[in-house]
């Protein structure tokens, strides 16, 4: 064997090994969580309210709370994010103003989540008088999710070949018809990926919901958008640090449910993606 081929083999081996290293942490995390939560995970745990100072019972209200917050976040951030990305990519001319917007979007993603929490608290809870509520929490999480959705949508739109737009426009379509029929359908998989990524992050954040929506202990389910809710990440924080003598397995079981929820969202996005890949006209 020549040296060049030897080196090629070594390079492949090293690269493969390094890639494997990336997989190890996630497998270990999952293994560790599953191993430690196995005693507490049960049907009861995910369908009942906490009892006896949260030492017994389940985490149902926190699951509902987190799901409600994810949906609320999506309702605000998805249209806002996608539409502004469409504007930036398809309509906006390249000038000082649009460059400023693009720069702000990039910088927005670098802001620590606790800052979003405080911002949401002052703007939505106090100034707009929404109170600590699902509405205030969803809006705060939505602002936090926006940059990722905008960036992902922008990249998805930019990767649609210019020729698709050309054909449509040359047939006399308006810009909006072109975007609607010839660009967005091809960008949907990319948009979905970005959206799920940012919503997964939103689902797991504690800081932004700390002052805006999260309840320490609230066994009943929310009745309106102005109610507080329990949420998984905050609940996890509470039972791990604020309540003494809680079995560790309950914390890990809560982790397990949170991760399971995020995986479920990813699964839905994979299914939707393959659906839209097959079906280009919508």
């Amino acid at each position: 064997m020549t040296t060049a081929r030897m080196r090629e083999k070594i390079a492949f081996f090293v690269l493969g090994l390094i890639t494997l290293l990336v997989v190890i942490p996630i497998l270990m995390i999952i293994f560790y969580i599953v191993k430690n939560s196995i005693g507490s995970i049960s049907w009861e745990f995910i369908t009942q309210s906490p009892r006896n100072g949260m030492k017994e019972g389940g985490i149902f209200p926190a699951i509902v709370g987190t799901i409600v917050l994810i949906i609320g976040t999506m309702l605000f951030s998805l249209p806002l994010g996608v539409l502004s990305a469409v504007y930036l990519v398809e309509y906006a001319r390249d000038n000082f103003f649009t460059r400023l917007i693009k720069l702000s979007v990039v910088n927005l993603s670098g802001i620590p989540s606790i800052v979003y929490g405080l911002f949401g608290f002052t703007l939505f809870v106090l100034f707009l008088k929404l109170g600590t509520s699902i509405l205030a929490g969803s809006l705060t999480l939505a602002i936090m999710s926006l940059p990722v959705i905008i960036t992902a949508t922008k990249e998805a739109l930019e990767s649609v070949p210019l020729s698709f737009r050309e054909i449509s426009l040359s047939l006399g379509a308006t810009k909006w018809q072109t975007v609607r029929y010839c660009v967005l359908p091809y960008a949907i998989p990319g948009i979905l990926t970005g959206t799920v990524l940012s919503l997964s992050r939103a689902a797991g954040e504690t800081a932004p919901i700390l002052f805006t929506v999260a309840a320490f202990y609230l066994p009943r389910l929310p009745r309106s958008l102005f109610d507080q809710v329990m949420a998984l990440p905050y609940h996890l924080y509470v039972i791990s640090t604020q309540v003494p003598n809680i079995p560790v397995s309950i914390s890990f079981a809560t982790c397990f449910v949170l991760i399971g929820l995020v995986f479920l969202m990813n699964l839905v996005s994979i299914i939707l993606r393959s659906h839209y890949r097959k079906k280009k006209l919508w």
């Binding site: 020729s163 698709f164 050309e166 006399g172 029929y181 280009k280 006209l281």
Partner: peptide, 25 residues
Amino acid sequence: GMVFQRPNVFDLSIYNNLRFGLRIH
């Protein structure tokens, strides 16, 4: 109307390729 260098049909059925223009107008 315009015809381009590469035959740039849409990734749709033949029917929907032809219907596209009718639909937008």
